[in-house]
Write a protein that binds this DNA or RNA. Structure first.
Length: 240
DNA sequence: AACTAACACAACCGCCTTGCT
DNA sequence: CAGCAAGGCGGTTGTGTTAGT
């Protein structure tokens, strides 16, 4: 029994993508944008599952991806965000422009876990390890995402001014591929159009005390919205 | 030089959520 | 409101690369 597979595996390629497949996917998205992933492979002439195409595009082919090593500041931001959010990789990725959830997840598992363990900090709870060794893996719950009310309260005490009911990235919708390509093509254009957002945008970097970091771009470019989260509006408030 | 272990990261799997009918 | 399809997400696995012996 079980659910039906997302695509017909017998007639799809699997494993590593070839250059030709990448080119087909890029060309198709450049021409048509990200549309229906399920029908995209056929339309683009790819023998791939739609999910696979989506993943390849998002994690590897998107032109706005920042590749290369994570900076020390990105490390610290990831650690702080993970402390607040737990394994919400997509939300964390939303605060790191050019980084993907998969990339951050991998980086966490391979580098940051060790780094924290070296500091004597449990990577899951972000608390100092007492006595026994930290138990990497799934022994403990993420601190806040699935936390009990008491745990949530403790979290609030640690970060009293931070609203943990984060409506992350609601208004930070990634630019559409055509916007990205257009921005890449435009050599002298101003900042790309930003989507309208509610009045209470708050720079998460500033909230986390990373104002001086290069990842925080809110000062030199106030219109830069990528690192912001949005406090839910108070009752009776309206966005416009 | 050959082998093995550790590491890094791309890709897959399956569940959950969301939107549509 | 239930059922379904599609998208999205987090966990896990597979594979190539590098370092150590």
């Amino acid at each position: 029994m079980g659910r039906s597979p997302c695509c017909e595996k017998a007639h799809t390629n699997r494993g590593a993508w070839t250059k030709e497949e990448d080119q087909l996917l890029i060309a198709y998205i450049k021409a048509h944008g990200e549309g229906c992933w399920r029908s995209l492979p056929k339309a683009a002439g790819l023998l791939r599952c739609g999910k696979s195409c989506r993943l390849r595009w998002i994690n590897y082919l998107r032109p706005d991806l920042k590749r290369g090593n994570f900076t020390e500041e990105e490390d610290e931001l990831i650690i702080k965000l993970h402390g607040l959010l737990g394994n919400k990789w997509s939300v964390i990725a939303g605060q790191l422009p050019g980084r993907t959830d998969n990339e951050i997840k991998n980086y966490w598992n391979t580098h940051i876990k060790r780094k924290l363990a070296g500091r004597g900090i449990d990577p899951q709870t972000h608390l100092p390890v007492r006595g026994g060794a930290a138990t990497p893996g799934k022994a403990s719950k993420p601190p806040s995402s699935a936390a009990s009310p008491a745990e949530r309260e403790r979290e609030r005490e640690r970060c009293p001014d931070l609203n943990l009911d984060l409506s992350m990235s609601l208004s930070f919708s990634s630019p559409t591929p055509s916007e990205v390509f257009a921005a890449a093509d435009a050599t002298s254009g101003p900042t790309p159009a930003v989507p309208p957002r509610p009045a209470h945008a708050i720079c998460l970097c500033c909230h986390l005390g990373l104002q001086s970091s290069e990842t925080c771009g809110c000062r030199e470019n106030p219109s830069h919205h990528a690192l912001r989260y949005y406090k839910p509006l108070e009752q009776g408030q309206h966005t416009h």
